[in-house]
Design a protein around this nucleic acid. Structure first.
Lengths: 340, 340
DNA sequence: CTGAAAGCGCTTACAG
DNA sequence: CTGAAAGCGCTTACAG
């Protein structure tokens, strides 16, 4: 239509220069007017281009099987997009070990991927990684825990404050006026903790804002997560304050608290925590954990890769904050969430 | 590798005959041994094959915006799979009008699509459609409401009985022993009602099976859904039985009950219903509806098309029953579900 | 700055 | 029953 060869058209589509302004404009005009859109199937077949996405996630660990889920989501996305030349390179670290995190970042920087998907556990190291990305002008996406940074391509995860707020609402149905509640923060390491603290903040705000619920809230931090330390730590609280009607655990370790409650026959106490792990589900089955808040872990990984795929292959504009739904899990519906 | 031309290889891959047993076997052997998998991108480009999927859904109607969601899911899937030659043809009917359903089926049968995605509203007509499909040997998928039929390719939707069971569990947190509960079934038409009845059955079984909840349950059917009829009908019940502590509405018309409760200041009564429609959300915002059960309407439509896509294009085996999660919606988390 | 040709991995007639 | 050739809509050198 423009009286030029496909080679020239290709040059203007991918604006890689070497075209006179006059032909370029002519071609652009025609593309617009005729609503031409490139056939990405043909493009993929012809270009044989490979996109290498680095995936920086914690390794699954004995304390929690949570991180196997985002990885499953990544693998699912990789399968779907493999036809388009998407390749994932996994860099798994030990979430309790800063050095391991740092090492994987070194490897990523060395291997020069085309983009990176990050679970940002340790602050300084994460900053180093994204500075390297900026320098190399490659996009990066955060998953699970957000990172204040205006240059990221996107974040895929949950609104953590709101999830705590929701937990409080659920709690409010089963505790009466004047009850005493306990918020437990249990973790060996306090890095990567902003979203955990947000959960607590959200929970507290609910009861502050809903004046018809006069509730006394205690905060408790447990650093040592072995069984004995937990017992000691909780025995003290529960003996001193014998009126605790509800417990909110701000992460996936809620099963450890459930075990304590079961062994000490402290029911009825409404227990709410996070994440659909096998360990937690045991206690959901036994009616000891009442609610789990789930953050769509599989979709987080899936969405992370798809975001990059949309950006590179489909040239779609992607949203900077992708908040996944806050799912409420009970004994009655958990089965349907397991594969998700 | 087999010493034959690509044409011959193609013939055995698509087993369209005209190949001697000896060469066929040789080729099959090599395909297996070398783990050859066809490049579907190249295949799509070369074949230019079009798959026409008929979509038989209710039209969106003033009483409920629910059905716009599955359609949105269909459109999303169509966008993603358009590159592979998937085309959707929509046949929308009036859900309260059997004739309209029948008419669209006639059109589908006449147009001979390659597959059909069905929201099975009226029984006999649906049977006629699937008999036609069987005859023409084309696959069909049910959405939203299941259909007892062993020849279907798949069903995508919710386990309706379990959703009622879950609703009862939620109800149990806020009603005391000996309370009186009301189940409301509100609908102009009673076809397509099996999954609605299942919800009721599920709700009732929970309280039957959990003996620590001694609860009196009333059932109430409302046929005329205009405001006055509802008022009359409910006034009677609420005046006779002044102790109703919770109401479970088995479909998306819960907002009509909410309106009645609001206007008659009957709170506190725990109100649970179905579906994240705009009409319902108003009353969630006002704390009149406590919980909505959502059935992932967008994913139903999306999943329906993707099931057919997987079947035709990816040659994947698909599951016969695809139960989507039963989402629990409250004022605190509904925003994150709206686009889903 | 521009065009012509080859090629990506398949499918589709057509000829034998 | 089998093969050779053209073509799907792009990209990629290469030549000028």
């Amino acid at each position: 239509m423009a009286g030029v060869s496909v080679g020239t058209v290709d040059r203007v589509i991918h604006n890689r220069g070497e075209v006179s302004d006059i032909t370029r404009n002519k071609v652009i005009r025609i593309i617009k007017d005729s609503h031409y859109v490139p056939d990405i199937v043909a493009r993929t077949l012809a270009s044989k281009k490979i996109y290498r996405f680095a995936v920086l996630f914690p390794r699954e660990n004995p304390d929690s099987t949570f991180w196997s889920k985002p990885l499953a989501g990544v693998n699912k996305a990789l399968k779907e997009t493999g036809h388009y030349g998407i390749v994932g390179e996994k860099y798994l670290f030990d979430q309790f070990n800063r050095t391991s995190f740092k090492k994987q970042i070194d490897r990523i920087i060395h291997n020069e991927p085309d983009a990176v998907l990050i679970a940002p556990f340790y602050y300084e190291e994460t900053v180093r990684l994204i500075e390297n990305c900026s320098q190399r002008k490659i996009p990066y996406v955060f998953i699970n825990s957000n990172f204040q940074d205006s240059s990221k391509l996107s974040f895929v995860g949950q609104d953590s404050k709101q999830s705590g707020y929701l937990a409080a609402r659920l709690m409010s149905y089963s505790v009466e006026q004047g009850s005493r509640l306990l918020i437990i923060n249990i973790s060996k390491v306090l890095d990567n903790h902003k979203h955990i603290l947000n959960r607590q903040t959200g929970f507290e705000s609910f009861f502050r804002e809903n004046t018809n619920h006069k509730i006394d809230i205690l905060n408790h931090y447990i650093k040592d997560t072995d069984k004995n330390s937990i017992s000691n730590s909780l025995n003290e609280i529960f003996s001193k304050k014998n009126e605790i009607k509800g417990v909110f655990v701000t992460n996936s370790k809620v099963y450890k608290i459930a075990r304590f409650i079961e062994e000490n026959r402290l029911k009825p106490v409404t227990l709410i925590g996070y994440d659909l792990t096998e360990e937690n589900l045991q206690y959901v089955e036994k009616n000891i954990i009442d609610f789990l808040i789930s953050q769509r872990p599989v979709e987080q990984g899936y969405g992370g890769i798809m975001t990059l795929f949309n950006h590179f292959v489909l040239n779609k504009r992607v949203k900077k904050e992708q908040h996944l739904p806050i799912d409420i899990i009970t004994k009655e519906n958990y089965k349907f969430y397991i594969k998700h």
